[in-house]
């Protein structure tokens, strides 16, 4: 579904992603693992074209995304949930969802506001509240719901468990599995191996912008030295 081929991305002169390639197949949940600064967020942004790779290709459903504006990428069916959430704090929950609304897509699950409120009951209670009056966990739910309003076929979740209470993290894991059951393809970036293993089918480990591992969690368990070298446990 998504194929990233040998991309190089930069922030100014800093070389962040170095010849990175990977694939995401339809229907799977892939975890992108790595330490702080390994390049996880940059990878997601490079797919979204919020960071523009200087070399390489990002092919989504047969179409090269390189050079497209971000809104085009979103319209093509990639939903992006940024790490720092970036909800619209002056807008209410309902209004935040409205910003994300896009027409339904044939190859992707379709979401209505009411369906999303079933998945995220907390949001339903706070539908008329402004974003700035919500807790971190609620804001995280809101960003995911907002992105789902675009009916994406691929969801990019950047560190969804970061800075959230453990109870909510568990809810989050259940939610991601529910989304997978609905037929959504998901790529999450994570530092939390435990959380990643609970939701993902496959792990990709990066370090210093290079891919170090790509395989199942079983394989990863068979090589504890990889885990020790590239993940902070």
């Amino acid at each position: 579904m998504l194929s990233v081929e040998r991309i190089h991305s930069y922030y100014g002169k800093a070389h962040i992603l170095n010849d990175l390639s990977f694939e995401v197949r339809r229907g799977e949940v892939v975890a992108l693992l790595g330490r702080n600064g390994a390049g996880k967020s940059t990878t997601m942004k490079s797919v979204m074209q919020l960071v523009r790779p200087k070399q390489g290709q990002v092919v989504f459903q047969g179409e090269n995304l390189i050079g497209q504006p971000a809104f085009r990428v979103a319209k093509d069916g990639i939903g992006y949930v940024p790490e720092d959430r970036r909800i619209f704090t002056d807008l209410t929950v309902i209004e935040n969802l409205e910003v994300g609304r896009q027409p339904r897509r044939q190859d992707a699950p379709h979401w209505t506001v009411e369906q999303l409120f079933e998945i995220f009951p907390n949001l339903s209670e706070r539908r008329a509240n402004r974003g700035k009056h919500m807790s971190g966990g609620e804001q995280q739910m809101l960003t995911i719901a907002r992105t789902l309003m675009g009916n994406p076929s691929l969801l990019l979740l950047d560190e969804p468990s970061e800075g959230i209470a453990p109870v909510i993290v568990e809810q989050m894991a259940a939610t991601i599995l529910k989304l997978k059951a609905e037929g959504l393809t998901v790529m999450i970036s994570e530092q939390n191996l435990h959380f990643a293993r609970a939701v993902a089918d496959r792990a990709i480990i990066i370090e210093g912008g290079e891919k170090k591992f790509d395989g199942s969690f079983k394989e990863l368990e068979a090589h504890p030295e990889i885990r020790d070298a590239y993940l902070s446990v």
């Binding site: 979103a74 209004e95 994300g100």
Partner: peptide
């Protein structure tokens, strides 16, 4: 929404 964060509005399509 754009008054607050135009890039995010773009990333939402």
């Amino acid at each position: 929404a754009a008054t607050q964060d135009r890039e995010m509005v773009g990333a939402l399509g």
